[in-house]
Design a protein around this nucleic acid. Sequence first.
DNA 1: GATATACTTGCATGATGACGCAATCACGCA
DNA 2: TGCGTGATTGCGTCATCATGCAAGTATATC
Lengths: 129, 129
Amino acid sequence: MMTQSRKRGAISPKQAARRRAPLDAMLDAGRFKALGDPTRVRLLACLAKCGRACGVTEIAECCAVDLSVVSRHLSLLRRAGLLEVEKQGRIVLYSVRYGDWAEALRALADAIEACCPAGARCGGGRCGC
Amino acid sequence: MMTQSRKRGAISPKQAARRRAPLDAMLDAGRFKALGDPTRVRLLACLAKCGRACGVTEIAECCAVDLSVVSRHLSLLRRAGLLEVEKQGRIVLYSVRYGDWAEALRALADAIEACCPAGARCGGGRCGC
DNA sequence: GATATACTTGCATGATGACGCAATCACGCA
DNA sequence: TGCGTGATTGCGTCATCATGCAAGTATATC
């Protein structure tokens, strides 16, 4: 039988730092940084709600910023894996990678809960458990 | 019968900007900005993998930055709703809100897929659909 | 009350990044 | 080939932010 001191997951932060977990691969600051700018998030939400592939000029109409700014933001969102791009003549069509994005978020959610010593749904995060 | 032109969700970005969706509430740039810094993410992952409530000094041991920096980062992560705090004497205990965080991510995933005209799992995000 | 421990806050500095303008590139069309 | 539209890139500027040091606050112990 397991003693109380040998509780699952109860280690020091220093030990935890060396321990590899699925969480590490998914918590890449670079990917989240893309979602950390208001203008960028607005463009992304706009495109997501739009529900189809759109050109840069078209997307720019939903935001009061220069076209060059929109172009840069979209490019960054693509590099972050949130958008995909397709050229159609001289028009650059951006579209949301709905499936990949949602899947990545769920995988992160799973990885987080895998770290929780009480397992999934431990009640509002109060995990002194 | 529905004609091809009356496809679900196929609107312009400008129209999409005015349309309210569950996605809007969940795509708050401020919350993501908290995850956009390498040091902050490292501290968070450290605490998550640790699996228990930890003091600031203890957490600081897993990162080569000043204690004041750690204190500020943890405070910011708390304001972002990712951590919770509890004072125990002179020690400030931070712990990860596993449940809330995972739940928020899944809700965002759902909101994203709700925007996808083809519904959930449309295959790698290629949604010209 | 004095001292030590645990943490927070003020301040200066350096780095990163968002923005607009202008120039340039890419492609279609006459 | 020249022109117009759509998009990207270079550059300067301004704001934000991460960091460390130093000073201050809070709590436990002697």
